[in-house]
């Protein structure tokens, strides 16, 4: 994945990196001493890894992959132009009780449904996710494997993970019908004396039963998918 870490760099690249550092300095991300220190290190850098380290705390997406080494989109938290990075940024909700890898899976699916991610887009690199969320790399790998199993993404060796399918939306008329049926159920529940919290509790419980029955039958049918492991 970081095979170019030890590639030797040219003077042109060192110059370009200094220009990038100057931009960070101008934007106030580096103070004078840090800037001087980094330019000094850029000028004496031997490998691409050396140069990359100069930007590790400056840019969320971190390392440029291609030959145009200093990308310098300047974005620290998903801002700025994206270039070869990913259009999405993961977040975690520790209080949700949902396993971390499933949260990542859900966020990709959500982004696909809402159009933040489309065919050919790249998912954030494992290292970048690990660095920004401080989570175990195996968790990210598990999420990406799950997405691949679902046919939503494909890994390209040495490059990363890319979207290769969209999520089929339920057609609007069908959605309206389902909503109507649900409203009917709500009226019935209200008539029976159930308050809002009671309805949510009942729905959540039924949904969990449904989910477990479905994943249970899937697991018995063949090899356990990682989804069923996670919810178990």
């Amino acid at each position: 994945m970081y095979s170019d870490q030890h590639l030797r760099v040219s003077d042109a690249e060192r110059q370009a990196v200094s220009g990038q550092l100057a931009e960070h300095f101008a934007a106030g991300r580096l103070d004078q001493a840090e800037f001087d220190d980094r330019v000094g290190r850029a000028m004496s850098a031997k490998t691409r890894g050396d140069l990359r380290e100069l930007f590790a705390d400056l840019s969320e997406t971190g390392a440029p992959a291609g030959p145009e080494l200093p990308r310098g989109d300047g974005g620290t938290q998903g801002g700025g132009p994206h270039g070869p990075g990913s259009p999405i940024e993961f977040r975690l909700d520790a209080a949700s009780g949902v396993p971390t890898y499933l949260q990542l899976v859900h966020q990709v699916e959500h982004a696909l449904r809402l159009g933040y991610l489309t065919l050919g887009d790249q998912l954030p690199k494992v290292r970048d996710v690990v660095a920004s969320l401080a989570i175990n790399p195996n968790t990210v790998l598990k999420a990406y494997k799950e997405l691949e199993t679902k046919g939503l993404t494909a890994g390209r060796p040495g490059q990363g993970t890319f979207i290769q399918a969209t999520l089929s939306q339920v057609a609007l008329p069908e959605l309206a019908g389902l909503r109507k049926a649900l409203l009917g159920w709500l009226v019935a529940a209200d008539g029976a004396g159930l308050d809002e919290d009671g309805m949510v509790a009942l729905f959540t419980s039924a949904l969990r039963d449904f989910h477990e029955r479905r994943s249970g039958s899937r697991t018995r049918g063949g090899a356990a998918s990682s989804e069923t492991e996670g919810v178990a």
Binding site: L92, V130, A134, P137
Partner: peptide
């Protein structure tokens, strides 16, 4: 984040002790 990035970059294995359970689930 520094510890976990080292596991990605260099393949370091980690053994850490803690009595703070909540944060371990991620790590």
């Amino acid at each position: 984040a520094l510890v976990l990035t080292a596991t990605v970059d260099d393949g370091v294995s980690v053994l850490l002790s803690s009595h703070v359970l909540t944060e371990l689930e991620r790590v």
